[in-house]
Simulated assay, not measured.
Amino acid sequence: MALDRWIALIFLGICLVYGYTAWFTMDANLAPFMRRNPIWPSTFPKALSVLAIGASLVILFGIEKSEPKEAEIDYRRLHEYKLGQAIVLLCLMVAYAICLRPVGFIISTTSFLFFGAFILGERKWLLMASIAIITTMIVWYLVQQVLGIYMRPLPGFLGG
């Protein structure tokens, strides 16, 4: 069996457990007044589990496959792909998650976007810095001001 089908089989198992939880265990502890609502807290997980099970079955049975292409990933040739970039980018994501609270949203997100672009091969420093800063400020404004969710913008010693 191909690698994508093995992954789909594992994903199907996870989705079945998630679906069982959404369909049978989440609604048991609902308050009586919520049982009359048309939308319950488990409505989205139920829909998500059905869609994910359907998607994994499509991959598992090979319905989406047409003709084999040259551009498909071959797990026997993983050493030919840019795994170093992917691993460094994953490490950068972990570092971003760890630094988000102590360093603050603005500095950590700007650094993540800047260094992520650098890892992926962009070398226009001014363009990377300006896009990272502008994007970070727009996202911070939308989350902070529009949605009303407080995010520490700067580290504590800088007044965040």
Rank of each mutant, 00 (worst) to 15 (best):
L3D: 11
D4A: 07
R5Q: 07
W6F: 11
I7V: 12
A8F: 00
A8N: 01
I10Y: 06
F11N: 04
L12T: 11
I14E: 05
I14A: 12
V17W: 08
V17A: 14
V17M: 07
Y20R: 02
T21L: 13
T25Q: 02
M26N: 04
A28W: 04
F33N: 11
M34D: 10
R35A: 14
N37W: 12
P38I: 02
P38T: 01
P41Q: 00
T43V: 04
F44G: 02
P45L: 00
K46H: 08
K46W: 03
V50C: 11
L51F: 13
A55C: 13
A55W: 09
S56K: 03
L57A: 06
V58Q: 10
I59F: 03
L60W: 09
G62K: 07
I63M: 09
E64Q: 09
S66V: 07
E67S: 10
K69D: 13
D74K: 07
D74G: 03
R77L: 15
E80C: 02
E80P: 00
E80F: 03
G84P: 02
A86S: 15
L90R: 08
C91K: 04
A95V: 01
A97M: 13
A97R: 12
I98P: 05
L100E: 10
P102C: 14
V103R: 00
T109F: 00
T109I: 03
T110W: 01
T110S: 10
F114R: 01
G116T: 05
F118K: 12
L120Y: 09
G121T: 05
E122R: 14
E122C: 07
K124F: 11
W125C: 08
W125S: 14
L127S: 13
M128P: 04
A129H: 08
A132P: 08
A132S: 15
I133A: 06
T136M: 01
T136P: 07
V139I: 12
L142G: 04
V143L: 14
Q144G: 11
V146P: 07
L147M: 15
L147G: 15
G148F: 08
G148A: 10
G148N: 07
I149Y: 02
I149C: 03
M151Q: 04
L154N: 04
L154F: 15
L154P: 03
P155D: 03
G156L: 09
G156N: 12
G156T: 13
F157G: 05
G160Y: 02
